[in-house]
Structures are given as structure tokens and as C-alpha cells.
């Protein structure tokens, strides 16, 4: 049982902690509102963009092999154009021989967000445990300090570490990440690029999610892939979503998927479209993650403030009891002393 003096110090210390957590709660609440609106507003754009590329992903472009043949006959300017077109079509195709998997993880910089980062890491571990070889082939691209710390501590294959701004993430700041993810995929050594981020559901709920960023043609390939394909068994959730999506797409008349008219040409449109979509998907993930982070922190700090309040009430009760006991003892001693003198 702590003494009276000790209790008094504790009450004081918890009170000042509560002040801090309350202040942090207010700050997070303000940031949360801003980030939530941003995430929700851009959701339409990114989901429409994703839908578009998934529809287009089924259209067959030039065969990559055929395109490579006549490369020598092109002028410099044409070559540049040609490369961009080739890039677009490569991003939509799979590399069957590729072994590696690129994983982008978007975490927070600071802690005090409850299970936020742990959930992301668990998501990664889930794939790792389900696929024996995954750990060897997974390469991490991290954004945010917490994910970097994890990668360093557990000796993961960290390919890139992108700084995450604490305040507002401008879209320019993810161009580098988008470019790197695209370039990595274009090397042909990666079978897919995944992105792990926290999806914002509501202020109280955020779910760690995995999304396949590249290639865009996942819908085709998951089903076409042979059964022994590890990913098929493990990325169950992902697959279910895809199948649902696929069914939705299949419900449409077949022609609608094949007969898009492109202006001026499929290559030119895709050349502009594809990088934009990669960017918008990553950016959306960052926005969702920001909204989730501040919501999680706000809730955590709210809990902490409430817990501190409970603790103070508890301590105050004990303190008062002790004080009353002390007074009673003193009083009875005085009375006893007085009686002894009479």
C-alpha cells in the first residue's frame, strides 16, 4: 500500500499525463477530420481509375515480342515513344519466370497509434507463413519510419525507404515511389508488386489491407494460373475480391471489354493513363493510411485520457481513505491521551 505522500505525487503525475494525452487527442481530432475528408473525396477517383484499368487490362495490346523486333528501324524520338508504349503494355502483362515479389508498406512515423503498425506487419507475416519461399523473395519498399524500423530489426530485404511527411502528403512526394515500383516491375524479375496499407473504414475501425498494384491483369491470371500457384491459396481474401470483381465484369456483355475505341491510339492513351493510375493508387493508399493513422491515434488518446481519469478517481479515493484513516487514528490517539491524563 503506497503512502499518502506517494499517492499525492502519483495523482499529480497522472493528471499531467492526462493533460498531454488530451492535448494530443485534440490535435489528432483536427488532423483526422482533414485527412478523412481527403481520403473519402479521392476515393471515387481512385476506384473509378482502378475499374477503368481493370477493364482495359483484358484488352490485348501488341505482343511484346513482336514489338521488340522492329526496334532498330526507329529514330530517337520514335524510340522514346516506343519505349513508353512498351512500358504500358509490360505493366499489364505478367512475367511467368519472375520469382520476386515487391511489397510496399505504408506505416506511420510515430507510435501511440495502438495496433496500427502491428496489424500491417501481421499482414505481411500472414503471407510469409503461408508461403515458405516468400520471405526469401519478398523485397520491401517502405514508407514511414515504423516499417523501416521493423525491416531493419528483422533483417528483411529492404530495397527503398521513402520518407513520409508528418503533416500533409502532397501527391508529388509519391511520384518517386510510383516510379520505383514501376521500374522494379519492368525489370521483369517481379511477379507482382503488392501494397500493404491501412484501409480507413470508420473512426473506430481501420483494417490492414493488401492490394496488388502491378500487374493490372490480376483478374485474368489468378484464374489462369495453375493450381500449384502458391499465391492462389494464400491470398485468399484478395482472390475472393477479385473473383467477385471478375464476376461483376463477366456479367457485362463480352463486347464491352474488348471493343473500346481509343483516341488517338491505345498505346498513346495507355502511355498517359498507366503511370497516372499507379500514382493514384499509391496516393490513395497513403491518404487512407493517413486518415487511419490520425483516427487510430485520436481513439487511442481518447482511451488514454479516459483511463487516466479513472486512475485519478481510483487514487483519489484511496488517498481520501488513507487521509481519513490517519485523521481517525490521530483523533483517537489524542482522545486516548486526554483520557490517560484525566
Amino acid at each position: 500500500m503506497p503512502g499518502i505522500k506517494e499517492l499525492k505525487t502519483r495523482i499529480r503525475s497522472v493528471t499531467s499525463t492526462r493533460k498531454i494525452t488530451h492535448a494530443m487527442q485534440m490535435v489528432s481530432a483536427a488532423k483526422m477530420r482533414k485527412n478523412q475528408t481527403a481520403a473519402l473525396m479521392s476515393r471515387t477517383y481512385s476506384s473509378l481509375a482502378w475499374e477503368l484499368i481493370n477493364r482495359l487490362g483484358r484488352i490485348k495490346l501488341h505482343d511484346t515480342g513482336e514489338m521488340e523486333k522492329d526496334i532498330s528501324s526507329l529514330s530517337d524520338h520514335d524510340l522514346k515513344e516506343f519505349e513508353a508504349e512498351l512500358m504500358a503494355s509490360k505493366l499489364m502483362s505478367v512475367f511467368p519466370k519472375a520469382t520476386k515479389t515487391g511489397v510496399i508498406i505504408i506505416s506511420t512515423n510515430k507510435g501511440l497509434v495502438g495496433g496500427f503498425n502491428t496489424n500491417l506487419i501481421n499482414k505481411l507475416r500472414e503471407i510469409e507463413t503461408a508461403n515458405e519461399s516468400f520471405e526469401q523473395v519478398a523485397e520491401l519498399l517502405v514508407m514511414g519510419r515504423k516499417a523501416k524500423d521493423y525491416a531493419v530489426r528483422y533483417n528483411k530485404r529492404l530495397v527503398a525507404d521513402f520518407p513520409k511527411s508528418d503533416n500533409w502528403t502532397p501527391i508529388e512526394s509519391i511520384y518517386a515511389l510510383a516510379k520505383m515500383a514501376t521500374d522494379l516491375y519492368l525489370t521483369g524479375q517481379y511477379r507482382q508488386i503488392l501494397i500493404i496499407y491501412s484501409h480507413f473504414v470508420s473512426t473506430l475501425t481501420q483494417t490492414a489491407s493488401i492490394k496488388q498494384l502491378l500487374p493490372f491483369t490480376q483478374i485474368h491470371n489468378l484464374r489462369a494460373a495453375p493450381k500449384k500457384d502458391e499465391e492462389e491459396n494464400t491470398l485468399n481474401e484478395l482472390e475472393k475480391e477479385n473473383i467477385a470483381e471478375e464476376e461483376e465484369l463477366e456479367g457485362l456483355p463480352e463486347a464491352s471489354l474488348e471493343e473500346y475505341l481509343f483516341e488517338p491510339s491505345p498505346e498513346t492513351v495507355l502511355k498517359h493513363l498507366v503511370p497516372r493510375i499507379v500514382e493514384s493508387q499509391i496516393y490513395q493508399a497513403v491518404l487512407e493510411s493517413d486518415a487511419s493513422e490520425h483516427s487510430a491515434r485520436m481513439v487511442m488518446m481518447k482511451n488514454a485520457t479516459e483511463a487516466a481519469g479513472d486512475l485519478i478517481a481510483d487514487y483519489t479515493l484511496t488517498y481520501n481513505q488513507l487521509r481519513q484513516n490517519k485523521i481517525t487514528t490521530e483523533l483517537s490517539e489524542i482522545t486516548a491521551g486526554k483520557i490517560a491524563l484525566e
Binding site: 477503368l52 464491352s256 473500346y260 475505341l261 481509343f262 483516341e263 498513346t268 492513351v269 498517359h272
Partner: peptide
């Protein structure tokens, strides 16, 4: 306004993607 000039889309237009 598309890269090829101003276009007008009316109901029943065929599927199209343009910059």
C-alpha cells in the same frame, strides 16, 4: 476537348477511352 479535338458524346456512343 481531346487530343484530337473537341468531341461530343451523345447517348448510345460506343465504348471509348480518350485523353
Amino acid at each position: 476537348p481531346t487530343t484530337l479535338g473537341q468531341i461530343t458524346i451523345l447517348p448510345g456512343h460506343e465504348p471509348l477511352v480518350a485523353t
